[in-house]
Design a protein around this nucleic acid. Structure first.
Length: 151
DNA sequence: GCCAACGTTGGC
DNA sequence: GCCAACGTTGGC
């Protein structure tokens, strides 16, 4: 069992949106970064823990808890010409982008980025590394447990 | 809206 | 395979 932090823009899909979806499931489409794709495709397993993170918004931070709900499968938006995530180089028989389904479990209090930075036990979180922009980052078991008590 | 940091692209 | 130019991310 592994743990992850997944960023989403609440304007696009907030924790409330994810909880309102059928069976609380959101297909995590639109990831167009190879490292993030590889995490989903190669390392995620059904049941892995997910910190649901709001980014690019008024108050960035952890907003909820979720879990990985499927194995990785090809992202259909890469083939949709009208989609902002359309990738002309992706081929049907050789998809470039993969994603998993995420099941939202609960909304938590918003734990702001500034608070995460302040918490000594979280000092080594990948999310907090200077210059980090990855939309999916691994979380250690220690960090997961600590954050579980915070929220 | 700014801008620093980073990833990707493509010419050579 | 290098690297400059460009586009994107995301906090502020």
């Amino acid at each position: 069992m592994r743990y992850w932090l997944m960023k989403t823009e609440p304007d696009e899909c907030s924790i409330d949106d994810a909880l309102a979806a059928p069976r609380h499931i959101t297909p995590w489409t639109g990831v167009r970064n190879y490292q993030a794709r590889n995490f989903m495709r190669d390392q995620m397993r059904v049941g892995d823990g997910v910190l649901f993170y709001h980014s690019s918004c008024e108050e960035p931070g952890i907003a909820g808890l979720a879990e990985v709900a499927s194995a990785a499968y090809p992202d259909p938006t890469q083939f949709e010409r009208s989609s902002p995530y359309y990738d002309p180089k992706a081929k049907k028989d050789d998809p470039r982008w993969f994603h998993v389904d995420v099941r939202a479990l609960k909304k938590t209090r918003l734990v702001p980025l500034a608070e995460l930075r302040r918490r000594k036990p979280l000092a080594k979180m990948v999310l907090l590394r200077p210059g980090n922009r990855l939309s999916i980052t691994p979380v250690t078991e220690g960090e997961w447990t600590y954050i579980g008590k915070l929220v």
